[in-house]
Design a protein around this nucleic acid. Structure first.
Length: 309
RNA sequence: GGCGCUAUAGCCAAGUGGUAAGGCCAAGGUCUGCAAAACCUUCAUGCCCCGGUUCAAAUCCGGGUGGCGCCU
């Protein structure tokens, strides 16, 4: 375990999909003797390459990448799994005297390494989830929410009754630990000293880039990638198949329809919007102009590394 | 040229006399073990234009304009 230590410095490259994070992270790694730690909930899966825009070997330019291709498409993977593995890797990188560069668009994953979140102190339990899910299906969101209101009023007050996933999670914590989610207090002081960068494209320009990138994924053979996943037995219900581009393509293939390109683009754009919203709350985040992002990122990283705090 | 049908938000669309449903898109937001997931909020002082009837018109009447269809 990495202990909070102000000498532990890491660099974070985050932001919406299609903004050029991977390339910037690699640039910085080359310049500052770093290794890239991916923070991407889809790129962790083996075999999901094109749709997750994984950097190719040549893109990586010899920079070591971690947290990519680490789980099989049949496995489930959670933030907590991510946190454990990533923390181990980060401390190893630091111990070797190199700079960890966290790069990815999954804000929740990034938060898990910056902050020491407890995540309710227990892992998901499919029996319990199934129990409440079927209750929900039979009785509706209001009835499900009423249970939580009775058992943990404080958490219920923070959730919307339609947010079934979170309502179920709160109930799950109650069942598993006997404790209320609202009783668990977390420490939000960062465990690392970090700077974060995001390349700040004007919205319209970002959307253009995304649209083009989706077209490119199709050209590169997204549908055959999805085909082979299906052929190997990966079903739509698998977690990895929730990825944008994967679910739409898989559904189209299974029903014999054309791949809904426009839908994939729309979903990707909406995802980018959610990412932008998420990262707005990140501390120490430097918004880089697309014109000179590389130079500024280098200057800022240099300043950050020199500063002993 | 004649006849018929039609015109509601960026798009689809309900509404047939009582003060503009819903969906999509878009924008903003939430986020503590599924996060590329899940969820929330906002989005037509106005119904093609002009005139009329009426206490009251997107709704009825007349005329115009655009679209669609049929006929010559």
């Amino acid at each position: 375990m990495v202990q909070a230590n102000t000498l532990n410095k890491i660099v974070i490259v985050c932001g919406p999909t299609g903004s050029g994070k991977s390339e910037l992270a690699i640039d910085l790694a080359l310049k500052f003797n770093g290794e890239v730690v991916s923070a991407d909930s889809v790129a962790i899966y083996k075999g999901l390459d094109i749709g997750s825009a994984k950097p190719s070997l040549s893109d990586m330019r010899g920079v070591k990448h971690h947290m990519i291709d680490i789980v099989s498409p049949f496995e489930e993977f959670s933030v907590s799994d991510y946190e454990n593995k990533a923390l181990e890797i980060i401390s190893d990188i630091i111990s070797r005297g190199k700079l960890p560069i966290i790069c990815g668009g999954t804000g929740f994953y990034i938060n898990s390494i910056i902050y020491k979140l407890s995540f309710g102190n227990n892992q998901g339990n499919s029996d319990i989830r199934n129990k409440y899910e079927s209750f929900y299906r039979e009785n509706g969101a209001d009835s499900l929410f009423a249970i939580l209101q009775e058992r943990d009023e404080e958490t219920a007050a923070k959730l919307h009754k339609n947010d079934v996933k979170r309502v179920i999670r709160a109930l799950e914590i109650l069942d598993l630990t006997g404790k209320k989610k609202s009783e668990i207090k977390d420490d939000f002081s960062p465990r690392f000293d970090y700077v974060a960068f995001t390349i700040d494209y004007p919205r319209a320009e970002l959307y253009d880039r995304i649209n083009l990138r989706v077209d490119k994924m199709l050209e590169m053979g997204l549908s055959s990638e999805v085909n082979s996943l299906i052929a190997s037995g990966v079903t739509l219900s698998k977690q990895c198949m929730q990825g944008i581009g994967y679910k739409e393509t898989a559904e189209a293939i299974l029903s014999g329809e054309d791949i809904p390109v426009e839908l994939i683009k729309t979903n990707t754009r909406r995802y980018a919007k959610r990412q932008i919203t998420f990262f707005k709350r990140m501390q120490n985040l430097i918004y880089l102009n697309p014109k000179d992002f590389k130079e500024i990122a280098e200057i800022e990283t240099e300043k950050f590394l020199k500063n002993e705090n």
